[in-house]
Design a protein around this nucleic acid. Structure first.
Lengths: 178, 178
DNA sequence: ACCTGAACACCGTTCAAGT
DNA sequence: ACCTGAACACCGTTCAAGT
């Protein structure tokens, strides 16, 4: 019997620890240097302990990206206007650039991982609500999404620099959507 | 003495062959499964032959991304209106999704690789020209760039599906920039 | 039910040669 | 000037145990 609803493992909540450590490590190292073995070492379990909880590194990365979308959804909740929502989105992207890149990267396949796709769609829902549309494919919603995603990514990758004509920083750039 | 201006190597133009093979392999395998050793094997050279031409795999990926931007620039040349330019950009992205993702990925650092940054900026220049602006940070140009980049990426990653309300396909979606 | 230990094939990278 | 061959440390993954 366990002391709470959470399942307990020998070393605590190993899946949760792996995700937590991964969120930190991906920013420190980049996706391409993120090592499951190294995470296991950090946590203090054997090299293959993660495989009791994730079928493969690919599926671990899917879980990491899913966690990313959930955190993005969290910072969007309760936002009541488009400007603020756009800035929350961009703020999240600038704070976690490597996790953000993974979430929208072909390294994690949305079509093959419905759970990931659903987390992505949950993070998109607040925008639909503020625009008052129901159709996920509404052109205004899609274009607003693409625009803030594009701005954040271009910024994270060095194509936009602080202090240019977009304003003192990207977050204060007028985000007109039409 | 060589038979042309091109430097000849034992196995031909090895750097060029590696890039050519990489452009093909990245679509087949994804960035994360792209192996320099495997490319060398394919071409028929030893595992470390690539290191005579690229200091590291990272710098090879930078060269691959640079090649990507050059090819993107090539399909943008001579385009005379915004709609067509936007569709050329998106068309390129849909044709080479994994290479396109690499070009705009933090895996290749723009700030640390001026040559890559310059190739990226050359691919951006036709948009500036069509908009009649000179400043790289012009808000209209940045927003148009972010929008088409965002649409292409969302599509490549399964967030937009063919046949939704954006039109018969993404390329026919009205691309109004303001 | 969850984890360890040992092993395998593979990779990026380095070094000492070879022509 | 360019390439090979052998080696090193590391990784993802599998399998046979252990408690």
């Amino acid at each position: 019997m366990s002391t709470s609803d959470e399942r307990k493992y020998h070393h605590g909540d190993l899946p949760g620890q792996l995700i937590e450590a991964g969120v930190e490590a991906i920013e420190r190292l980049g996706v391409d240097r993120l090592s499951l073995r190294e995470l296991a070492r950090q946590i203090g379990v054997s090299p293959n302990a993660p495989y009791r909880h994730f079928e493969s590194k690919d599926l671990y990365l899917v879980a990491l990206a899913t966690e990313g979308f959930d955190r993005l959804t969290a910072v969007s909740e309760g936002v009541e206007d488009l400007q603020t929502l756009g800035r929350a989105f961009i703020g999240f992207a600038l704070k976690h650039p490597n996790l953000f890149a993974l979430m929208f990267s072909p390294v994690v396949s949305k079509s093959q991982n419905p759970e990931l796709m659903e987390a992505g769609m949950r993070s998109y829902a607040p925008l639909l609500k503020l625009l008052g549309v129901e159709n996920h494919s509404d052109p205004r919603a899609v274009k607003a999404w693409a625009l803030v995603f594009g701005l954040a990514t271009l910024r994270n990758n060095g194509f936009l620099v602080e202090g240019d004509d977009c304003g003192p920083d990207l977050l204060s750039m007028p985000l007109t959507f039409d």
